[in-house]
């Protein structure tokens, strides 16, 4: 609880700066309107107008908050205008991509650690894969999965999310699976342990702390992947698509509300993964942190 004070302080400072910036940036429009109408603008007019334009350059925090409220609580969640509806779509993509990413990352790491050939052939490609801009790759993935006939956009979007999220899992798992030291391996040799015992009883459990640490990074990467996929696959639903629509149709409120909904959702995901990590650590005999 003692962490709350610094967080609140920073948030308050940001809000103050935000209001200042909104006032300054939106005032241009107010002045223009006044000049066209030939009227004078008093300071109080200016203040009230910059805080409630319908299409401001920079919406004030309370406008975003109320837009968020309207599009989450007040709208039916079946409505296409509901952020909950859109968020669920992004969440589904994220989770599907996250699961794909974990499976692919763990599988590749296992092959890399257990076989020399795997190490020499797979690792460089895994690294190269991350140097390709996902935005460039996204349309190709969509076209290819359409050609294969996956039907909806869900699969290609999840593939894009997985493309970003497998990498942190892979790197951490390689590190984790190779973390047992020579002494630990020698001990198992003295028992005449088989390779499968070494893997299941030593390497895999040893890698778990690395695995859990990577999950937080991976879920964030998967989320970014899902949003980018929605932005770049001409999707019409999902938070990413809402952001794009907001910007293309000159609806800054929608754009900002979608952005904040995305931030809140990402925060929730990371919190959930963090709680899962804590529980798992406890189950594996870890010290309480």
């Amino acid at each position: 609880m003692k962490n709350i004070l610094p967080i609140v302080t920073i948030v308050l400072a940001l809000i103050v700066i935000w209001y200042g910036a909104a006032f300054k940036m939106n005032s241009t429009w107010t002045y223009d309107q006044a000049a066209r109408a030939g009227t004078e603008v008093t300071f109080s007019d200016l203040l009230s107008d910059t805080m409630q334009q319908s299409r401001p350059l920079l919406p004030a925090p309370h406008q975003i908050a109320s837009e968020l409220w309207n599009t989450t609580v007040e709208k039916k969640i079946t409505s296409k205008r509901s952020m909950v509806y859109q968020g669920m779509i992004t969440l589904k993509t994220t989770l599907l991509g996250f699961v794909f990413g974990i499976v692919i990352g763990v599988a590749l790491a296992t092959v890399i650690v257990l076989s020399r050939v795997g190490r020499l052939t797979l690792m460089p490609w895994a690294i190269i894969s991350q140097t390709i801009p996902i935005v460039a790759l996204a349309p190709i993935i969509v076209v290819l999965s359409n050609a294969v006939g996956t039907g909806t956009l869900m699969v290609p979007k999840a593939i894009i999310a997985a493309y970003l999220s497998f990498y942190p899992v892979l790197v951490s798992m390689v590190k984790g699976l190779t973390s047992p030291d020579q002494m630990q391996l020698d001990l198992l040799r003295t028992y005449g342990a088989r390779q499968s015992d070494v893997f299941w009883k030593l390497r895999l459990p040893s890698s778990m702390p690395y695995f859990f640490a990577s999950l937080k990074v991976a879920v964030a990467a998967s989320f970014v992947g899902a949003v980018v996929a929605e932005l770049s696959t001409s999707a019409i639903s999902g938070l990413g698509a809402r952001m794009l629509i907001g910007s293309q149709f000159g609806e800054p409120m929608i754009m900002w509300a979608a952005l904040f909904a995305a931030a809140i959702l990402a925060g929730l995901l990371i919190f959930l993964v963090g709680s899962f990590e804590k529980a798992a650590r406890h189950l594996m005999g870890g010290r309480a942190l």
């Binding site: 342990a193 459990p205 778990m208 005999g285």
Partner: peptide, 23 residues
């Protein structure tokens, strides 16, 4: 060995059980 090298994810019983499982 010089270091105890117990598995932190196993209890003491679990650690002693390790060679029994493997053998």
């Amino acid at each position: 060995f010089q270091a105890a090298g117990l598995y932190p994810w196993r209890t003491i019983r679990g650690n002693i059980q390790l060679p029994l499982e493997i053998m």
